[in-house]
Nucleic acid binder design. Structure first.
Lengths: 203, 203
DNA sequence: CTCATATACGGAACATCGCTCCGATTGGCA
DNA sequence: TGCCAATCGGAGCGATGTTCCGTATATGAG
């Protein structure tokens, strides 16, 4: 093995002690379980207890609470980010694609207790969570939005960033206040986004 | 004085010691000042320090943080609640009245640092804040909404409660994330609320 | 197999919250 | 003036996120 064979360009975590990698996975599983039953605001101590490790172990693997949250939901984030690639535009119009993606995004946020709230919290450390979501999902939504606008189906003067935060915001309180129908309000927002004008060039 | 002369039906606070009433006002002023410069999440201790009183004094007058917040903003809440009475429908259509009230509501939330966030927080004690807002403002919004729907200008299948929480939610992050244009998204929501159908009987 | 050491672990400790409690203080009345 | 209940002040409690450091252990060399 020449030294150039494996010059760690990014230390992905392969070069760690065995128990370290095992504990990292244990922590992810424990955190996922606790998040489901106690929300993403669950105390760090509770996650540590669930995983059967000490506080120090958590903070070595995930420097801040937000990092742990991001790590737990990363694969679901990936799924949302791959959406366009997976279903570019088979049998649905760009507008329908936009709608269904937003619906999946909303489902994701509503399902995870307190995720939507945390996303917009100004609590120290949670900007990371916000940034992660924006980085991963904004390009996808932007593409969907532009496609729909290009088809003349939706307004072209709405920025993906605003829409993404708005949808995220509308999900807040969906479970705290059972009477609040977040999805209905998201539909209302999307209705406002739609244009009466049929495709300008197509007709 | 017959015992029936002043049987405190509701002790409005007139029957208190002088220093007590003075401190209550001092606290309201101090809290208002601190809220402006540090947001509604400012530590209670900081408000106590600003007012130059001890912790006990705060909690005697306002049993919980949320009560203090409510008290500070009560007169602004009153102004929003009186809106319809003040301006029933002079020179504007019911839809315009609805739009301008929502705009004032949004301005109120955006201006106060963190108020929108606090409104939807599931933190213990903040349900009071939520309840106060709903109790005071829901009737007003409901009336505006029904009037606009009756004029055929807006959809009739949207509940005032949902709309109120939605508008409140859309205000979240307006100052935490400077790029986010909350008012634009509120306009989008209201656009979705509007109906294409012109006033069926009026025109 | 033994041992040395870098690595990872555990949990006590710290700072910061909201909120409670109780002894000290003081306003208001006879 | 003097009493007493109402009020005040701030130490204290429990919870939380995060840091620190002494201890335990995985792992590669001999």
């Amino acid at each position: 093995m020449t030294p150039a064979d494996k010059p760690p360009p990014v230390d992905v975590g392969r070069r760690k002690r065995f128990d370290a990698r095992r504990n990292q996975q244990t922590l992810l599983d424990a955190a996922a379980a606790v998040f489901v039953r106690a929300g993403v605001d669950a105390p760090v101590r509770e996650i540590a207890a669930e995983a059967g490790v000490g506080m120090g172990t958590i903070y070595r693997h995930f420097p801040t609470r937000a990092d742990l949250v991001v790590a737990v939901f990363r694969h679901q984030l990936d799924a949302l980010a791959d959406a366009t690639t997976t279903t570019p535009a088979a049998d649905e119009t760009p507008y329908e694609a936009l709608r269904s993606w937003v619906a999946r995004f909303a489902d994701f946020l509503v399902t995870k207790h307190g995720l939507a709230e945390a996303l917009h919290s100004d609590q120290a450390g949670f900007e990371r969570l916000h940034a992660e979501f924006v980085d991963r999902l904004l390009p996808v939504l932007d593409q969907l939005l532009k496609a729909s606008a290009a088809a003349g189906r939706t307004r072209a003067d709405i920025r993906a960033y605003d829409l993404m935060l708005a949808v995220g915001n509308l999900c807040i309180g969906a479970e705290t206040f059972p009477d609040y129908q977040a999805r209905r309000m998201i539909d209302l927002l999307l209705a406002g986004l739609a244009q009466d004008t049929p495709p300008p060039s197509g007709q």
